[in-house]
Design a binder for these strands. Sequence first.
DNA 1: AATATGAATGAATAACTATTCAGTCGATTT
DNA 2: AAATCGACTGAATAGTTATTCATTCATATT
Lengths: 221, 221
Amino acid sequence: METQQDLRQRRFAPKEVRRQQLIEATLDSLAENGISGTTMANVTGRAGLSIGIVSLHFKSKDNLLTSTLRYLSEEIRDAWVNIYNDTSLSAADRLRGLLAASFDTNIASHTKIAVWFAFFGETKYRQVYRDMVEEFDDERTGAIEALCAEIVKEGAYENVSPKMLATTIECLCDGFWLNMILYPDWVTPAMAQNQFNDILARHFPAHFEFAPPASDARGLT
Amino acid sequence: METQQDLRQRRFAPKEVRRQQLIEATLDSLAENGISGTTMANVTGRAGLSIGIVSLHFKSKDNLLTSTLRYLSEEIRDAWVNIYNDTSLSAADRLRGLLAASFDTNIASHTKIAVWFAFFGETKYRQVYRDMVEEFDDERTGAIEALCAEIVKEGAYENVSPKMLATTIECLCDGFWLNMILYPDWVTPAMAQNQFNDILARHFPAHFEFAPPASDARGLT
DNA sequence: AATATGAATGAATAACTATTCAGTCGATTT
DNA sequence: AAATCGACTGAATAGTTATTCATTCATATT
């Protein structure tokens, strides 16, 4: 049987294999060097291919970057949508699952988070991001809001605005992501999970439990 | 009397005026074009000066960027430290003031936030950021933690970890900043203030009041 | 085995950019 | 008024990078 790995090493491979191979090399280069340091030579060198290969499979560098962003955004959407759509689970479990998916180490690896922020760093690509991902972002915020609304209804909670809480959760996600790459030793996915749980327990005490305080007390100065 | 503005227009001006002028042009260029689009010609052109001026006042482009980051980080530190150090205010008011300063439109303008994220976007400058700002970041998180601890003591609140809450606040700040430049029509400084108030009211009900729900209810779908 | 196909190569090109530095020019001093 | 000073200029330089395309070569077809 011929594996993907074999195909990559061979001189000729199907277009889709090469495209994926180049996108992954681009992810690595963007994470390591940012947009200004990501050159064609760098990307193709990482992939073990020649300079000219990009113009063959993607017309231009710009198109390669755009395709890379599309790949990332579709990957992360797939990750949370599956859990969100599983209506056999309770709303609280679906919310827990959606957040867990957002900090899964495959989806939110150091490399991939760094690439997101590489795109956020320049107006030009921030616009590309908006044009491409705004719909997904809206969908995701809407999903979180819907889950919060369902939990509010179940628990007859007062003084909780699902829309407001959804926005807070989204912004907090982004903030954790940023601090995970700025200070990886300090901010970890486990910490993010823990803090989300705390926030949710404060809003929905019948649905979420406070974590035992031991893990945090240790860190107090 | 000779104003700063006059000095800028003249062929000769003191070094400090030129340095500041170049830093401001760099801020604008970084916000508009990111790091990869910020060229010497672009920066000096904006400042109405010639190409060679950067090497005269800053040795290199790299030094210009580093100096720009230092300027930003000192500016934001000055903004919150003044309020934090005013011990005539209550801890709750000092926390409110610190957060208000972080979303002040001079400190956290669209341009300046975009510049922060330009530096976060590339590993190389993320490292520069860490080396330069980590101390300030620690100081700020420590200040927020200390204020939270004081409020906890005042209110004899249980189940609130100052360290954990400080981290949440910091991450939420960053998340709001990002979304303010990604979706400026959706996420505004006023919204950020409102959400911080809600979070704090949930932790410290005797110190912070929930805002009237009217402003949010309008937005519900 | 000969031919055809098209994926892949990489040298060459054209465009761009940071840095340098000899010369310019307004202000100050003598 | 002449000389000095030093902030400023911008053409020239050296280096980098995206893009192109004639050529190479593994595989498929006849």
